[in-house]
Structure formats: C-alpha cells, structure tokens
Amino acid sequence: MLTIADKTFSSRLFTGTGKFSDKQSMVDALAASGSQLVTMALKRVDMKNRDDDILAPLIANGMNLLPNTSGARTAKEAVFAAKLAREALQTNWVKLEIHPDPKYLLPDPIETLKAAEALALEGFVVLPYVHADPVLCKRLEEVGCAAVMPLGAPIGSNKGIRTQDFLEIIIEQANVPVIVDAGIGSPSHAALAMELGADAVLVNTAIAVARNPVAMSRAFALAVQSGRMAYEAGLAGQVQQAVASSPLTAFLEEA
C-alpha cells in the first residue's frame, strides 16, 4: 500500500483524464486501470460552448481527484489556480505544474519551489511536477511537499525513462513518495520506473491515445504491479562478464 498525506492507495498507477476521444472511453479506461487517483485541469468557462461534464462519472466511480495547475506560468498564477481548484473539486490536493514554455512544457523550478512553499503553508497537499533534479526534489520535500513528481521525458512525448540516473538518486534520497510523471509511453517504461523503486507512476497520453485505451490500461496496471513486485523481490545486480547459470561439468569430455 502506498500512503500519500492522508490517503492510502492499493494501486500505484495514477492516471490523467486528458486526450481521450470521448467521455465514455475515458471512464472505461480509468476503471480498467484500477487507478484511484486521477488528474484534472481547470479552465475558464467558454460561455458559448459547453464542455463535457467528466466530473460526475469520476466521482461516481470513487476516484480521488488531483487537480493540476496547468496553464500557470508563475508561482502567483499557480497559487491562484490551486485555490480555484480547491473550490471547484473540494480537495486540498494539487498537482503543482508551472511550465511557461509551450514547446517542451518543462517545469520552471524556481516558480515551482516558491509556489510549493506557499501552498504547503496554506495546508495544501502539494505534488509538484518537476525535472528529475535531485537537489530540487530535496528542497521541495523540505518546504512540505507530500510527494515529488519528477519527469521521465517531456509531457506527451512517450519517450520513456530518459532521466534514469537522476531518478535513481531522487528515489535513493527521498523521504516522501516519488511518482514518475510524464514521458511514460509504454508499459515497459512504467515497469522500469517501478523496478527503480518509484512509488507510483502517472500515465495519461499513452493510455488515452492508444488504439484500445481499455486494454492499454490493463497492460499498464500489470506492468506497474510487475515492476513493483520485482523491486520488492530485489533485482539481481549487473556484471560485465558472464556468470554461468548451469554447473560447468564438462560432461562431453573424456575423464
């Protein structure tokens, strides 16, 4: 079981709700994933076109909601977004994300640290989306973040765990849960993150845009369980030379 702040999760696969082709496929895929924590975004209401109400089915399925601050470019904007999200979704949990550059959507570490400190002081359960920077992750832990969410690769890139060496340092040093977020494009990427000792992964694009999101959700759920099981079982170390798995009895040679 994974505990973050006041909540306990039996599934270590967290999921996003974006990019699904329609509401029903999102609801079905998230149910198949077994995920107990799903992210949502906030936007200014378009007074002319109504957006689908995706909230009701998520609540009906008992999902915990994790609103994000996507769209915020500064700490000040992110704090405002977090407070709006708290009103909209009636939760003090927030995925803090501040990415001013739309091309790579990389998180701004300075604004993120400022916002994290302010939000933690106001009683938010802060889960910051950050680069795989071990020093920053320690600083975020020190200002009261409930977990850290370092990236594997840019959001939606599906490139996998490109930050492995730094994730390993973060996992080694962290006293809060480490959730690998962003870039996980296939179940094997998720399994690798879990084998490294990540406490959970957050997957969105890879499930939402799969040809069959429900089946892909199941594949991710199995990969996350498998990776976690392997981590807990203790992986055998790597060596350069071969080490025989069978006894070298030389039975074909004359005695």
Partner: peptide, 10 residues
Amino acid sequence: ISLFQAIAGG
C-alpha cells in the same frame, strides 16, 4: 467575474 470549470487534463 471569472468563472472556471474542472475539465479533463493530465
């Protein structure tokens, strides 16, 4: 007045 709504997102 600024009015906001929770929507799908990652």
